[in-house]
Design a binder for these strands. Structure first.
Lengths: 113, 113
DNA sequence: CAGCCACGTAAGCAACTCCTTAATTAATAA
DNA sequence: TTATTAATTAAGGAGTTGCTTACGTGGCTG
């Protein structure tokens, strides 16, 4: 990774499919490390190391209760990432109207269903 | 990097401040490699290698005319990244109102200034 | 042709990533 | 206490990254 600035650390954390899968799993709610490791054909220490990378990036939080470590998703770092991405997609200075329109559509649909 | 799936390749390409600065520069328009290398205290080959990473990720395109290579920004890969990020920020199923409000703020500011 | 210019490739190196197995810590349960 | 369970730390290795310097390539110019 080499670069130690926050954005680089978060991007690097996301540049691994195992780690992204872990984050996806955590969207369903807090989980223990063992449960998190289950779907992967990988040793527990490997998962622990991935979790450390995610924690350093601020993308998860770990709490201890008894001998279990519970992992929680933290989405704050994704705000910075999203801002950078959207800026470079050219959304910030141009297509407000389009985005606005789409959001309104989605909003209507979700209140309908 | 190890992972070779498209999303991982793009995230990894973005996990370096030099490469992100190159992309930022390219937002102003197409540029030659020499011009692109100028702001960095780094050898030309190093920049060439960064450009290769960006090209492999589909984030730039290089065209040759005479002895110059012109680099162009390609934002398509950012669409996938943005979709993943927004999905995991929970924006797709929840906080439409908040986003809507923020966009309205930004819009007002940009039309004011 | 020779010489310069813009850029890339090749080779090498320190540092890092991602995985492994073995040992360790800490809490629970007999 | 001893054994079991959950997870981390330690140590090591194959492969990758990010830089360097040296050399190569293709296009222009005298």
């Amino acid at each position: 990774m080499a670069a130690s600035d926050e954005l680089s650390v978060v991007f690097a954390a996301l540049a691994d499919p195992t780690r992204r899968a872990i984050l996806s799993r955590l969207r369903q709610g807090p989980t223990t490390v063992g449960e998190l490791a289950e779907p992967f054909s990988m040793s527990r220490p490997a998962i622990s190391q991935h979790l450390r990378v995610l924690q350093n990036a601020g993308l998860i939080e770990r709490t201890t209760s008894a001998q279990w470590r519970t992992c929680n998703l933290r989405t704050e770092p994704l705000d910075d990432v999203s801002a950078w991405i959207d800026h470079h997609r050219g959304l910030w200075n141009e297509r407000f109207d389009l985005l606005d329109e789409r959001l309104r559509e989605l909003k209507e649909r979700s209140s309908d269903g």
